[in-house]
Design a protein around this nucleic acid. Structure first.
Lengths: 157, 157
DNA sequence: AGGAATAGGTCAATCATATTGACGTATTCC
DNA sequence: GGAATACGTCAATATGATTGACCTATTCCT
């Protein structure tokens, strides 16, 4: 009855980190989500634009591996981005089964609008806490990311 | 044609952080999600258990504010957790309109199972990068979290 | 040449996540 | 005694993602 989580100070510090992850992730996506809504797209579309924008020439399969969704889940948003003229495809000259994905000018501009607010949020925090803290934060996030299949592309970012 | 995101080195470093946030969040939730599935619950239920477990006596309205969802969105998962015997409610003695939420023994045990894997993942990274890095990471995450209404509860964690 | 494998696209069914809007009950505030 | 608050729930809708099945085009392999 009336259970509370009992734990050492060290464990409490870890609990706080779990909560922080939840809150921080929401804060980081809040503004781009609102912007996306104005363009009638969602967070998935944002992700597609981001990875195609930063890894131009990505194949559909590579994008699936990065996002870790099924091709059925990618199909609709990818098609919508093509219809909106944000993304174009080009058959790979060496293997015409493979479609290479690229951003159009307008796709590039939309990505920039979405990314801008996140960059500003990051920069504001960097200005506040200093470069050393951000470098440590990045190192820790890399440790989390390392088990994701898409992390192998991070070096070229 | 063939747009790529052009940017300075500093901007590239920021782009990488955006991708890292996405990958890290997925890694952090992957294992608890798999465990939750075995108990026929989802990530929302995990969140409810977490915040009720760490802030026992929370009212429904307070929980809504922390999770930042509508009461309709909370209703079903909260009811399911009651039905499963994970959560119990007690009317506030001073204002009987208010229901105070608590974990039962079995709710507490389930939360512990879900939390354990995240603690272990965190601890493994702490062991690898060192306390200083984690403290810096935490400081940065607090800066992100500060704009969330639920962050005011973090001190008591 | 011909079959197997691969890359991609799409349809259907299903499930979970969350929203807005409306409505009802119990309680408390004034 | 009426207004406001806390909570619960029904309905409709939209979004996100899954599994499973089936299709075309291309390439690989023997």
């Amino acid at each position: 009855m009336l259970n509370r989580v009992t734990a050492s100070d060290h464990e409490h510090a870890l609990y706080k980190k779990i909560a922080l992850f939840f809150f921080a992730y929401r804060s980081f996506n809040e503004k781009p989500d609102m912007i996306a809504e104005k363009y009638d797209i969602q967070r998935v579309h944002h992700r597609i634009l981001f990875f195609v924008g930063h890894f131009p020439g990505l194949s559909v399969n590579e994008l699936l591996a990065i996002l870790e969704v099924t091709k059925q889940a990618l199909n609709a948003p990818l098609r919508q981005l093509k219809e909106k003229g944000c993304i174009m495809t080009d058959a790979d000259p060496r293997d015409k089964r493979v479609k290479r994905l690229f951003l159009t000018d307008s796709g590039s501009q939309l990505l920039q609008k979405l990314t801008k607010v996140q960059m500003e949020q990051l920069q504001a925090i960097i200005d506040k806490v200093g470069d050393a803290h951000i470098d440590a934060w990045t190192k820790v996030m890399e440790e989390f990311a390392i088990e994701r299949p898409g992390s192998k592309y991070l070096d070229s970012l």
